[in-house]
Amino acid sequence: MKRLGPRIEEKAARIGLLAMTLITVSVLLFIILFILRRGLPVLNLEFLTANPTDMGKSGGIFSTVVGTVALTLLAIVIAAPLGVGTAIYLTEYTWGGPVTRIIRFGAECLAGIPSIIFGLFGFILFVTKLKFGWSILSGGLTLAFMLLPTIIRTSEEAIKSVPPAYRNVSFSLGSTKWQTVTRVVLPSALPGIITGVVLSIGRSIGETAATIFTAGSALRMPTSLFSSTRTMSVHFYILAREGISMPNAYGTAAILIIAILAINLLTYYLMNRFIKKYS
């Protein structure tokens, strides 16, 4: 009996843990399959390329696709240089100390701030104080701030994993620090950095709370940085919540899921390439 005790416990624990994991995995698969099964039949080229009409009850989702892409692009264009620059500074140009600690603390805190706070902030600063109104500009800036910590962290990890020997080679060949960073460190860290950027794109596509109060929810095709626009996530939210059109809601959700799947696959591919390169 004494020898049986731990063995039974081991078995029970194994079964229990595995069951919990299986439940988690199946919940996820269920969500994805559920959305795809109802959404895929709605999808066709017209759904993607036609503008929504009648509040989204009919027509497609083209203007929201454009809005999402515009917002995401603007956010990345702002956040990527800032984030990568910060990561370069933290990894290559400093040896720790209070300044570094403050920068790290700031990034970590920023990462924990909920998106609705970003939304509130973007609304008061960009929409009202700076008078950008509900616009791609306000939404893009707000999103950029939100993505910044993710890009900093992933870039930092990518840069840190570049072997120190590469830097020594570059220095010993008579390169300056900046030449070493741009010619040796960044090219080697690029797949990792891009992985972080791609993940951020995924996050910004799925974001709702921060964009609805800064970019607004206009269904019109945006024409400039100052146009209000509605992202796909916001569109889905409005369609579903106000019961405007369930088929169109499912269709939009399916597109969102497909985009996220594609992004995850892409990051996997990039990460694998990155790991292969250094092992």
Partner: peptide
């Protein structure tokens, strides 16, 4: 699969 969980939008 679990990483996908993180990518699904909260509205979904």
């Amino acid at each position: 699969i679990i990483e996908l969980l993180a990518g699904i939008p909260s509205v979904v």
